[in-house]
Structure formats: C-alpha cells, structure tokens
Computed example of a mutant assay.
Amino acid sequence: MRVVLAEDLFLLRDGLVRLLEAYDFEIAAAVESGPELSRALAELKPDVAVVDVRLPPSFTDEGLQCALAARRETPGLPVLVLSQHVEQLYATELLAGSSRGVGYLLKDRVAEVREFVDAVVRVARGGTALDPEVVAQLLGRSRKQDVLANLTPREREVLGLMAEGRTNSAIARQLVVSDGAVEKHVSNIFLKLGLSPSDGDHRRVLAVLTYLRS
C-alpha cells in the first residue's frame, strides 16, 4: 500500500515513515509543505495520503486544502488528516464532499500504533476513521441542538462508534452485545434520522453528516 505523507516537523515525519514502513506500507513520498504535497498527490496517485492539517507556507489549513483539492482532481483519493487539536470546521469540511475514504485523527492517536495503522488501512480501503475526541465533541454539540434528541443513550453510543469507522461486529465486541442487537440499534438510528434504505455504508456516513452539518 503506497502512502504519501505530509508533516512539517522532521522528527514526527521521520517517526511516521518508520512506523508505517514497519507495517509494510510503501512510502511513495514524505514531504513537508503544501506545494510539495500537491505535486506528490498529482504525480504519484498514492493508495492513501496521511496529511497534517497545518503545513507551510501558510501554517493555517494548507494541508487540508491541498488534500481536498487533490480529491476534487482524483475523486475518492483516500485522505487521513492529522491535527494537533479538534477543529470541528476541518472535520466538517473534510466530510462534506465524497464521504468515502476519509479520516480525521488527533496526532496523539499515533502513539496508539495498532489503532493508527488500522485507521490508515480503513481509510485506504474506502472507509472512514474519526477520532473519538472529534466524535465526542460533535455529538456533544449535536445534543445541544437536539439533532439527536430522539436517539436513546445506547443509540448515541452506537452512532459515536459508527462515526469512528467501526463495523457492526467491532461495535458489538466493544459494547459486549450481540451483532443482532447492534444491527437493531443501527436500523433505529437510520429510521430516527430519516435516512431511507439505500447502500448500508453510505447511510452510516450520512448518519454522521447529519449532526456534522446541523
């Protein structure tokens, strides 16, 4: 699996390269600025891009904007964004376009190596990966706005795990319930959020977008 990595801090960039290579990823390019990232994504067409939100020269949201531009040029290009802090606007902007193959993690999550690697793989395969802290803040904001008022506490918990990119089986293991119980909760979430029957994975993302866009 070929990766383009963008991180301006040398030590973190080098650490990420070593970590990913240890798990048999091929580092197609490891860059430190927005312009370098744009060129690498356009020329190399990687399986997944792992991108710091803030990159030179602007040090604002340069990395995110380069990644979004690349996804417009190559629809579905998988992008996992790393951020120092939770920025709800960044998460919303990332998920506002095509909802497949996107992720948003806090940099601290890199220390949880297995979970980080799983997130990279999940995004590369077209799934989603949202940091639990991002999900918690977004769910908290949504509760204040009563977007999820009709959901039970358990359904909110299931929705939070869905937003992290967990499968029904993974949710069942974490909550220590049956797969059937999780399927029932997910169906109730779709019903209460007004998401009509369609592709299952697509509705999972739409359930997350319902409160992201509220």
Rank of each mutant, 00 (worst) to 15 (best):
Y23M: 02
A149V: 14
N188I: 04
Y23T: 02
K144V: 15
G101W: 05
E26S: 14
E133T: 06
L139T: 12
K144I: 15
H185T: 10
E36C: 00
E112G: 04
D179V: 14
H202W: 13
E26R: 15
E93Y: 09
K184Q: 11
S178K: 00
E183T: 15
D199P: 00
L11K: 08
R125Y: 00
V110P: 01
V147L: 14
P197S: 11
D179R: 15
N168T: 14
R166H: 13
V177I: 15
L80A: 07
R143G: 10
D24Y: 12
L94Q: 01
V81D: 01
L64F: 04
A42H: 09
A30D: 01
A136M: 09
Y90E: 11
P46G: 10
R100G: 03
H185R: 00
R154Y: 09
V134A: 04
E36Y: 08
R204F: 07
P57S: 11
L55C: 06
G165Y: 08
D8L: 00
D8T: 01
A163F: 02
F59H: 09
S99H: 09
C66I: 00
G63Q: 05
S142G: 15
G15V: 05
A111C: 07
L193S: 03
A30F: 07
S83P: 03
V81T: 05
D14W: 13
Q65N: 12
V17Y: 00
V17G: 01
